[in-house]
């Protein structure tokens, strides 16, 4: 019930960034606590507060899409080839982008970090081991997922949003094809598999370029650098948990932006914008919570 009504309703965009263009001046119930209904809340605090309230409404909708997606993962009917096609679109087509950006960031990080380490400890033998722990525990998954949020999130929202404004989603519903089943589920499954694969690859790329930078700039032997001594099971579990969480969150957040598109071509543009921002934000927030939980579950050895 929730999305079918919304797909065709011109209402304020959900999610963390209510857009000044699309939101009617009086934001009804959601912004009601902050301002008299006639006046738009002004000022930084009000706008942060409104963002927060919109965010809460958005989280509720996201939860509903997520539950329906899980339902259809087990109960839905899959169109032939849809999953493979999405895996190609999400995975293979992001490979170059992810490799390039993660390669760059790997070089930058080792260059900067080693320069700073030198100021405190002259001995560089543990730079590689610490770097590997950070890559496994966080960097590969989180920075890579920011990239995927941009690349994959925008793609999903643009596609689904275009289908909404050209009434293709309505046409699907006329043929007993629930958009969540027909559009979201293949993207969700494909993203789950491909995100994990891409983020593992991102870690490999990131570590390799960092290792090369250490060798070329600071003369750290490759064998010294590639030292897995500090990586323990807890780091691997936390890293993989992040991969899975991001892989699930990005398609759900972006599909939600796409399905709530309204209006013509501006609407598609806004939906895509929203998808990038909200899925990046989802990555950052999830990172904070999973990292903290990981720290409690696997306390660092002293």
């Amino acid at each position: 019930m929730s999305t079918d009504a919304r797909a065709s309703l011109p209402r304020a965009p959900l999610g963390a960034d209510a857009d000044a263009h699309a939101t009617p001046p009086s934001d009804g119930g959601e912004g009601g606590e902050q301002a008299p209904p006639a006046a738009k809340p002004r000022g930084i605090l009000a706008s942060i507060g409104r963002t927060g309230l919109d965010g809460l409404g958005g989280v509720r909708d996201l939860y509903s899409i997520f539950v329906r997606t899980l339902y259809y993962v087990f109960r839905g009917r899959r169109a032939k080839g849809a999953l493979a096609e999405q895996m190609y679109a999400i995975g293979n087509k992001s490979l170059f982008f992810v490799t390039f950006t993660m390669g760059c960031i790997g070089m930058i990080m080792v260059y900067q970090a080693t320069m700073q380490t030198k100021k405190v400890v002259p001995e560089l033998s543990l730079v590689g081991a610490s770097y590997m722990q950070l890559v496994v525990r966080d960097f590969a998954a989180s920075i890579g997922a920011m990239m995927l949020a941009t690349r994959v999130g925008a793609g999903i929202a643009a596609e689904i949003g275009s289908m909404v404004v050209t009434e293709q989603v309505d046409a699907l519903r006329m043929c007993a094809a629930d958009p969540v089943d027909y559009l979201v589920v293949p993207r969700f499954l494909a993203s789950l598999v491909m995100t994990v694969a891409l983020l593992v690859w991102a870690g490999v790329v990131m570590f390799s370029t960092g290792m090369l930078t250490g060798y070329v700039v600071y003369d750290i032997e490759l064998a010294t650098f590639a030292n897995p001594v500090m990586v323990n099971a807890g780091d691997v579990v936390v890293g993989l948990a992040k991969c899975v969480a991001y892989g699930a969150a990005i398609p759900i957040v972006s599909a939600h932006s796409g399905l709530t598109t309204f209006g013509g071509s501006e609407g598609v543009g806004w939906a895509t914008t929203r998808a990038v921002v909200n899925s990046s934000l989802a990555v950052i927030v999830l990172n904070f919570f999973i990292s903290t939980a990981g720290l409690m579950a696997f306390p660092p050895v002293k």
Partner: peptide
């Protein structure tokens, strides 16, 4: 929604902008 799907199965709809799956 599920009951509606059955009703919709008995309805043909030609959309204003055709809504062809591109």
């Amino acid at each position: 929604e599920l009951a509606l799907q059955k009703v919709r199965a008995g309805i043909g709809f030609q959309f204003q902008n055709n809504a062809l799956f591109d």
